[in-house]
Design a protein around this nucleic acid. Structure first.
Lengths: 209, 209
DNA sequence: CCCTCATTCAAACGTTCGTTTTAATCAAAC
DNA sequence: GTTTGATTAAAACGAACGTTTGAATGAGGG
């Protein structure tokens, strides 16, 4: 195998360490050590530690967003009003697919996503591009058409619930379940079932004027 | 109002900053500044920054755990096999009640809980006591009786889903919904509806031998 | 009044942090 | 063979970090 360039190895090492220890819990020296690179390499290739974080997050998020949009396009090409279960699968599925690619069965990617979406700090929010906004708007519109009986606020709550369940997925793994090897990815199916039922629940709002 | 003692003010300041910036993102100096205390006060009252974190987490988690156990006791006193919706409410309700007490409508407590449950680092896991284990075991047992058709793994996944939805609750607030003042706490009702439906979903496992 | 003891204070400890600088390296272009 | 331009290497920068120290403080009991 050809040795990957320093830039890529820095991204890999940073992605791993940011997921495990967080942004401020990871030193540039720990990253360059794990990457087998010189300390100054981060400054040279990315400018600063914060810009390295942006590059890492972008590399993780972008393929997920792309797949979420493609899935929605596929659904809308078939029907103007896709059922909620299909919308759930198109939205949550790519999150699980992305998590499966990681080394420890995606636990690391999952943890990184939790940090990305849960951290209010400016550094963690600098990556958001227009693609994420249009993604969000389009799914909200699709879900609104599928569930016109729900208040906008309650619909919002449920969509955030999808993201919560998808992201937390494997984070709590450190207590049980010894064998994730034989089963390919049951969590994805469990999540779709769980979330489709949740999204199909009748409104809990007393009225929705 | 009487000035609270230094120890309490340190706990308050640390709780707030840990929630906003994380453990390693918060300096002892930032805590003591916000608390209006001297730098050495942390070492004097708690021994170290890590032990201060443990005290903060315990103060947040303990009343929640207590209320969750009390709610389960109330249910079991009425019926040996409570329905899933009641179990969901007894488990998730106290999480929302705890979140409502905070200054910004519980967003801070919510964020802290996300960090507590999502962080794999040793420091963040040092607090877990026996109460949390018995809590978990008892709810798993109750849910197992309520849903004997589910695999133990899928049931586990769903219970973690409850925690995910309850914790993430208000984390994503930074984009929309200007008015959380007039509505007291609709999120709690939304979450119960959402999660009760999710927990009542038929099994997605092909078989459950 | 003085002693006691818990608490607070200013100051300094050595370490680690992110970043910058300057020189060394090296393949490709001429 | 030399020059060029991009990359890597070693070293140092000041700042901020968690922690420790030893003296000041001040209320309560003798």
């Amino acid at each position: 195998m050809a040795t990957p360039d320093t830039r890529t190895q820095l991204l890999d090492a940073a992605e791993r360490l940011f997921a495990e220890r967080g942004f401020s819990g990871t030193s540039v020296r720990a990253i360059t050590d794990l990457a087998g690179a010189n300390l100054a390499a981060v400054g040279y290739h990315f400018g600063s530690k914060a810009e390295l974080l942006t590059a890492v997050v972008r590399r993780v998020i972008e393929p997920i967003t792309t797949e979420q949009l493609a899935g929605l396009d596929r659904l809308l090409a078939r029907s103007p009003e896709p059922p909620v279960a299909d919308l759930v699968e198109a939205f949550a599925g790519p999150l699980f697919d992305a998590m499966r690619t990681g080394d420890e069965g995606g636990a690391r990617t999952s943890r990184l996503i939790v940090r990305i979406f849960g951290d209010p700090s400016e550094e963690m929010r600098s990556w958001t591009g227009s693609a994420e906004n249009t993604l969000r708007d389009r799914y909200v519109a699709a879900f609104t058409r599928a569930r016109p009986d729900l208040t906008q606020d309650e619909l919002w709550f449920r969509i955030r619930g999808i993201l919560a369940v998808a992201a937390v997925d494997r984070v709590d793994r450190h207590n049980q379940t010894p064998a994730p090897t034989d089963a390919p990815e049951p969590a994805r199916r469990w999540a779709i079932t769980f979330l489709a039922a949740a999204m199909s629940a009748p409104p809990s709002e007393p009225r929705a004027n």
